[in-house]
């Protein structure tokens, strides 16, 4: 190989590195945690996800770790592509009628084995840190949710409040309010809390997946899988069952509402949940001492008169099948 060729190859790979750095830079600036403080304000907005709209520390962690991965790996995409384009333009039969003599270069072969291997090791280190972060749940999670996948709905149990709710995936937008009538049967979570989820199933496999939380885990009969995340943004987050579970698998959509603690407690009370003693003080502080009378559901589902000022007041809670069933089963 001529000296000139070596220069060109080095040049192409330097270009690949630069392109990779640019890609990584574009990736980094595409999301600014300081300004992106809110999730989607309604369920009709498009899905958010871990890459550009992370809504939990886990998702953010995966996002930053992936930047490193993009930086290390992309040269190995750009490099071969640049070389391929160059080869096609320079070494066609018309431009280069006689092929060069066969050659061999052991150093080169060793180099292109060792360098990618080193790159992979360098890439793996932050990946494992992120993995550890994902795998070790907080010792005292603020909320514990037991989720059960069933054909074809999700059932959430909040054992602390003696509360169960069922999300059957449907969304019916009320034309007047612009909000979904099923909202109360979805999973609600208070903001800025850590959440531990235990997943189980009694029939077939499903997977609980909310991209914005950076969380996906299979629920499999005969075992309990666990994940954790925290809620860093208010809003409506969408997910989807991610393990083929039968005919209506596509309809096993997931809706999660992250809201202020106050709204969360109101939801708990509307659903007929009970406040445990250790949280009583906090609830009184947020909702007032007479919260029981004001928010307890009447006839199983209907809440008492709601203070007009709150968000939730805009949507009177419907007696959907899911909601009634859930409250009844408590």
């Amino acid at each position: 190989m001529a000296k000139k060729d070596i220069k060109i190859i080095v040049g192409l790979w330097v270009l690949a590195l630069i392109l990779s750095a640019l890609t990584t830079w574009a990736y980094m600036i595409s999301y600014n945690p300081a300004t992106a403080t809110h999730g989607p304000a309604s369920i009709s907005e498009p899905t958010t996800h871990w890459l550009f709209q992370p809504a939990s520390s886990v998702a953010e962690r995966v996002r930053t770790e992936s930047a490193w991965m993009v930086f290390i790996i992309m040269p190995f995409l750009y490099g071969p592509f640049l070389m391929l384009f160059y080869i096609i333009s320079r070494f066609s039969k018309s431009r280069h009628p006689v092929a060069d003599k066969p050659n061999e270069n052991l150093t080169l072969e060793v180099a292109w084995t060792i360098v990618p291997a080193l790159a992979l090791i360098v890439m793996a280190v932050p990946a494992y840190e992120a993995l550890r972060y994902m795998e070790i749940p907080p010792a005292r999670p603020d909320q514990v949710i037991n989720v059960t996948g069933a054909q074809f709905y999700w059932q959430y149990e909040l054992p602390r409040y003696g509360l169960t709710t069922t999300d059957n995936g449907t969304i019916t937008i009320d034309a007047k309010t612009g909000r979904a009538t099923e909202e109360d049967s979805w999973l609600h979570l208070p903001i800025n809390k850590t959440v531990l989820m235990n997943g189980q199933s009694f029939q077939v496999n499903h997977a609980w997946w909310v991209p914005a939380f950076g969380v996906k885990f299979d629920v499999i009969p005969g075992r309990i899988n666990t994940v954790w995340f925290d809620t860093k943004k208010k809003g409506y987050f969408k997910g989807q069952c991610a393990e083929l579970c039968g005919t209506l698998h596509a309809y096993m959509r997931i809706q999660v509402v992250v809201e202020e603690e106050k709204d969360f407690y109101e939801w708990v009370l509307r659903k007929g949940g009970t406040i445990p003693e250790e949280e009583e003080a906090r609830v009184v502080e947020l909702l007032g001492a007479d919260y029981r009378e004001r928010f307890a559901p009447k006839d199983g589902a209907k809440p008492a008169s709601l203070p007009a000022a709150t968000e939730s007041a805009k949507s009177p809670v419907p007696a959907t099948a899911g909601a009634t069933e859930a409250t009844g089963s408590k």
Binding site: P80, I87, W112, P116, L120
Partner: peptide, 27 residues
Amino acid sequence: GFMTMLVGVPTGVKIFSWLATLWGGSI
């Protein structure tokens, strides 16, 4: 995860070998 990354190494070797074959060829 680590073993899977390792598969990328021989795969890379193959791609580089093809490129080196093409380099200097008369295509």
